[in-house]
Amino acid sequence: MESLFAIAIGILTAAAVYMFLARDLPRVLIGFIMLGTAVNMLILAAGRIGSIVPALVAGNESALTAAAANPLPQALILTAIVIGFGLAAFALMLIVKSQRILGTVMPEEMQEAEGDVAPQALPAPAPARRKDAA
């Protein structure tokens, strides 16, 4: 069972990395989200799987029974899912913004946009040159 899970996680990782390496940012984002999912699965599997019983202390007992699932990875994953979601939402907004302002979601095309911005950062040209430009 666990071996099968390991293989599935491997396939998910491979797919995530492949998407991550795409040329357009939306696919990169999908890869990013999938990679996060793959790591969550990795944590779950490393904490051992098998039990279907939730990690709840039964009403007549004072401690978790051995039959229950491992609670620790679950707590870690819960945090990771929420943080990953926040990060993905923020990255998505950046992509949307770049589409609106730069007109592209391809990082390779964004280098030109950088070139347009750069001259403003330079000190003001000498008066003589300004005259030439006029």
Binding site: E2, I9, G10, V17, A46, N70
Partner: peptide, 26 residues
């Protein structure tokens, strides 16, 4: 990219199998 992706996938699967082969510390 496919090569890198497959290498990454294999690495993660191998890592997980290695972890699962060790006794669980509960």
């Amino acid at each position: 990219d496919g090569g890198i992706a497959i290498a990454s996938g294999v690495a993660v699967t191998a890592l997980l199998l290695a972890v699962l082969a060790t006794p669980f510390d509960s």
